[in-house]
Amino acid sequence: MNSVYITSIGKFLPGSPVSNEEIEDYLGKIGGKSSKTKRIILEKNQIRARYYAMDKEQKSLYTNAEMAALAIRDALERNEDVSAHDIGFLATGTTRADLLLPGFASMVHAEADLPVMEVSSHAGLCASGMQAMKTAYLQVKSGEHEAAIACASEFLSREFKHTKFEAQSIYSDSRVPFDTDFLRFMLSDGSGAAILQHTPASKELSLRIEWIDNKSYANQYDVCMYSGMSKEDGIPSWLDYASIHEAADRGALNLKQDVRLVNEITTVGSNRFLELVKEGRIDPDAIDWMVCHYSSHFFKEEIFRLLEAGGVTIPNEKWFTNLYTKGNTAAASIYIMLEELLNEGHLSEGQQVMCIVPESGRFQTSIMMLTVVGPA
């Protein structure tokens, strides 16, 4: 089995940073009224800026696939050892692709102008980016391919256009419920991509992937974050409505989060981390950087509490996030965080970087161990 190294990481963040005061200039005010949810959600998540891939007229400036391709281009331009024609495998992750079919990887493959290659699409929520990473990692580790790309991209702002909700008769006499409205002030757009090879970069630092642990707990929990069904209607799929129009009118295609379940995400993620400590796969004292994707500052404090209750304390100065300045880009967040760590000089040879991505869809946790290595 080969060692596997992340030899370069690229990102793409569309447009200029959007402040808290500007959010509804882009997403619009539903029914002409500012959201009552906005203030309390922004206080809890503490996000100060994010990026949107649409303008204030709610016109899309890119497709999701285009943003993924731009992140891939950035990663390739930063890599002196490979070109596009050296890549044999592409794995992608996203919450909502531009099309229902074909798979997102096929669309990104074409948009990025890559050569004929093997591709793999991962659909879901935040964990889909790490699923793409593990698939690419295993391809290189097994020797099936010498170089691969893993990427994740999100275009979530267009989910929350005010016109979308104003057209739904279910909300014509009432405000959009909290389980949907609060997500308008949580999620944003962006993409990231990583080049994986079986040798480290010749001139720059690389990240050796020691292991990736992906676990689903869907057998233990109900659906929490979802789109394509209505818990209120008791209809299991949008395809079971009499028509697509009825499904849309009933809000079944909206992105929602069951707020009664969402706090379980910190429990699931912390428990898996503590299990890996007990198994001897993680030495908390050896961790130099804790790169954790959390959707809100509120969850960071809860993670600290749960880890300390389990006997593990990782000092605050070891935790890294750019949630507050780059926004919550879901599946792309872990790539965008690692890109900043690697490309802006935060890392040193020999350091250990622990990456954690919890997902509340039906509850998953992805944990990845990296070691910083010097040039080959």
Rank of each mutant, 00 (worst) to 15 (best):
T321A: 10
E204R: 09
A71N: 13
A127K: 13
S16E: 07
R184I: 03
H109G: 04
K44M: 13
S270K: 01
A75D: 07
W319D: 07
G327N: 11
K36P: 00
F155T: 12
L125A: 13
Y335R: 08
E24Q: 09
V357M: 14
T94M: 11
G129R: 10
G192H: 04
I303N: 08
D233N: 06
S188W: 06
A147D: 00
A167Q: 09
K164P: 00
K36F: 00
F165V: 04
G124P: 01
M107Y: 12
N214Y: 14
T371L: 01
C151V: 11
F165P: 00
A147N: 03
E154Y: 07
S60K: 08
T266S: 06
N343P: 02
F273P: 04
A68C: 12
V116F: 15
S153K: 10
E317D: 15
M337T: 03
S8W: 11
N64T: 11
R272H: 08
A127R: 12
P236I: 02
L274A: 03
R50C: 13
P102Q: 11
S142Y: 12
T63A: 05
I23Q: 05
I6F: 03
Y51Q: 13
T92G: 15
Q364W: 15
M107L: 12
G345F: 13
C355Y: 00
L156T: 04
